[in-house]
Amino acid sequence: MPVDLELEAVLRPIQYPMVPYPPKVITLANGKKMVVRQAVREDVPEILKSVHPCLFIERDYYDIVSARLYGELLAWYRYRVKSEYCLMGQVDGFLVGVVNGRMENEKVGMSYHTLAIDRGLRIGSHLFAAKMEYHMEYLNQEEVLIVAESPIGFRRWMIEYPLEKTTIPHELGGGDSYRLTREIYFNAKPRLVVGDRPVPQELMDEATTAIKFADDDTIRERIAGLKGR
């Protein structure tokens, strides 16, 4: 597709510099090691392969979250969103969860979405915590605005941290946003934010060599829990 560079300069939003998120490893309840690391733009087409089957799962609003995440990642890949980042969790090289967000401005972060592709291991909680860690400790922002599409998300973020209610509308037209302040984050950190650094080299090699993906049926079963039926 031909690109008019002059027009492209207008269409591309301003990008704030995004500092790197140092990878970490988390021991899950089943003993498996989850590597949490920052995706690069070139990872997006591969990540979307795991997001795609979730588009058709109604349970717990996976369809809405996945559709929005899909669009956000695509917008990042094709330079149509401001200052977006993406963190991902991998177990044995397999993608088990994705979180993303962006910088609204240098002081305020915007949490986008949290997608746990493997469930029952608090992967979503770990990855959301990593996202908040990135905003607060690496981007050094003062606050993060957050909304939840699902009751599970509401329980995990709004209640567990607990977040502060605002009247700032949801970026996509949903309910009002909640706010994570630095004070709330550092109070919650001892019970919600974990992970070891540096990641052992063999785990890092396994995660970075290739992003592995479960097949669509496996993803659907892990999310919807349709075992035995």
């Binding site: 021991t27 089943n30 974990v194 075992k227």
Partner: peptide, 26 residues
């Protein structure tokens, strides 16, 4: 048990010994 709600073995490290257990097993 094919009738069980949760069919996942746990790991002692993951729910008890590791400092990460504070999130896994609050």
């Amino acid at each position: 048990n094919p009738y069980a709600h949760v069919e996942m073995a746990l790991d002692r490290d993951g729910i008890f010994d590791s400092p990460h257990a504070v999130v896994n097993n609050p």
